[in-house]
């Protein structure tokens, strides 16, 4: 089973996204900020990461840049998921190594179609 790490400082968002992605047959792990997420990836690199932008301690963009510099860190498919959805922010995320970008709010259809688009399902 593929693993998906959900990184968001909102417990509610993690829960909602987790339920949707579990239905897509992923094993779910959660992190509340970028630093926790990085720790998790050092232990066990997931196949997919759903990533929020604004978080305490370490934000999504800094996490993504750090992840891509790590050994094996180029492998996970990273889908940004943020309310910061003007084209500057989106462009920045893509240039920093995100595979796709979901504009919040999202629903099950959006996550499923984005995961299909990036080849996860």
């Amino acid at each position: 089973m593929k693993r998906c790490l959900i990184v968001d400082d909102s417990r509610v968002v993690r829960k909602v996204a987790g339920r949707i992605i579990r239905d897509l047959k992923f094993e779910i792990a959660e992190a509340g900020d970028g630093a926790q997420a990085l720790d998790h990836c050092r232990e066990q690199m997931p196949e997919a990461v759903l990533l929020d932008w604004n978080m305490p301690v370490m934000n999504g963009l800094d996490f993504l840049r750090a992840l891509r510099r790590q050994e094996g860190g180029e492998a996970p498919v990273v889908v940004f998921c943020s309310t910061e959805n003007d084209s500057e922010h989106i462009g920045e995320a893509i240039r920093s190594g995100a595979n796709d970008f979901i504009m919040k709010p999202f629903d099950a259809d959006i996550i499923e179609s984005k995961f299909a688009e990036v080849g996860l399902i």
Binding site: I94, D100, I102, F106, D109, S113, K114, E117, V118
Partner: peptide, 12 residues
């Protein structure tokens, strides 16, 4: 709208 545009299209 916000939902339709994201259903099936990559951000690119």
């Amino acid at each position: 709208g916000h939902f339709d545009i994201q259903r099936g299209l990559s951000i690119h």
